[in-house]
Design a protein around this nucleic acid. Structure first.
Length: 275
DNA sequence: CGTGCTGTTGCTAG
DNA sequence: ACTAGCAACAGCAC
């Protein structure tokens, strides 16, 4: 489920439920997710520690335990977090159970096992060292049209994969990349270096706009931190191109949305109003 | 039954 | 220096 808006939504939802509570211990129900799980290391990091903050960086969730230590979580493609009573039996795809005080758990469930959960150390800004390589936040001040223009000169890759590169800007996944390009009328396959300054500016504006809207709508799909299975979030009905191959373009209804594959991922665009 | 898709990330080979 | 391709995994639609 997660693109940035979904991760932001989950982070906001679990933050008040976790703040000032204490971890007891963790149990790993599988040997590995994206990386091998180290139950001992998790327990060493978590046991008895109080949660002082819960925040998002890119699509990662950082649970700050103070003293420059924390728990670093990523939901991969299908990860879910929820908080539930400890007495509840584990779901089929529950992978890690973090036991909290007051007989409640934070549980990480993930069918495809692309998630991650590992202890981390934080730099002075509270960011895990593992995330030092990431580009600017799309909603932060550093992500400007000027910046995008500057770093895209001489870059021949398609603009869509360029804005999905986490070293360029974080948090723009497959759905919102297609959506942002539709909004500004740029084809996903255009070489990054062929964007004008003005196009870079409008693209940045569109990315920010769309992510903000999606956050306001609680994400495209709702990740399930509290209860049942994921449902479609309100924003999924607002997607203009993603998943709409063969359907009419919302700007030029006589044209049909096209699907192409770029670096193994589906891209959707309107061949008429995206150039 | 297979086949081909799926919201991510980071490594590898060219 | 840069980029395409792929692997990790499970489930689902056809």
């Amino acid at each position: 489920m997660p693109e940035l808006p979904e991760v932001e939504t989950v982070t906001r939802a679990i933050r008040p439920l976790l703040l000032k509570r204490t971890f007891k211990n963790a149990s790993c129900l599988v040997e590995r997710l994206r990386h091998p799980l180290d139950e001992e290391a998790l327990n060493h990091c978590l046991a008895g520690q109080r949660i002082v903050d819960v925040r998002r960086r890119a699509k990662y969730i950082v649970i700050d335990l103070g003293k420059n230590t924390g728990l670093l979580l990523h939901l991969g493609m299908t990860g879910h977090l929820r908080i539930c009573k400890s007495e509840l039996p584990a779901d089929k795809h529950d992978r890690v159970i973090f036991h909290l005080s007051r007989k409640e758990d934070l549980r990480l469930k993930d069918a495809r096992r692309f998630s991650m959960a590992k202890p981390c150390t934080l730099d002075e800004d509270g960011i895990p060292h593992e995330l030092a390589h990431l580009g600017p936040e799309p909603l932060g001040e550093k992500f400007t049209g000027e910046y995008l223009f500057k770093i895209s000169r001489k870059r021949k890759r398609p603009i869509k994969s360029f804005i999905m590169d986490q070293a360029v800007v974080v948090g723009v996944g497959n759905i919102y990349a297609s959506e942002a390009l539709w909004r500004v009328g740029i084809r996903p396959g255009r070489a990054a270096s062929r964007l004008t300054k003005g196009e870079c500016e409008s693209l940045v504006a569109a990315i920010r706009e769309i992510l903000r809207e999606a956050i306001d709508f609680g994400g495209t799909t709702i990740i399930n931190f509290a209860g049942a299975n994921g449902e479609h979030g309100a924003f999924s009905e607002r997607l203009a191109v993603y998943g709409r191959a063969g359907e009419p373009c919302l700007r030029c209804p006589h044209t049909t949305i096209k699907r192409i594959v770029q670096t193994g991922r589906s891209s959707f665009y309107c061949p008429n109003c995206q150039r």
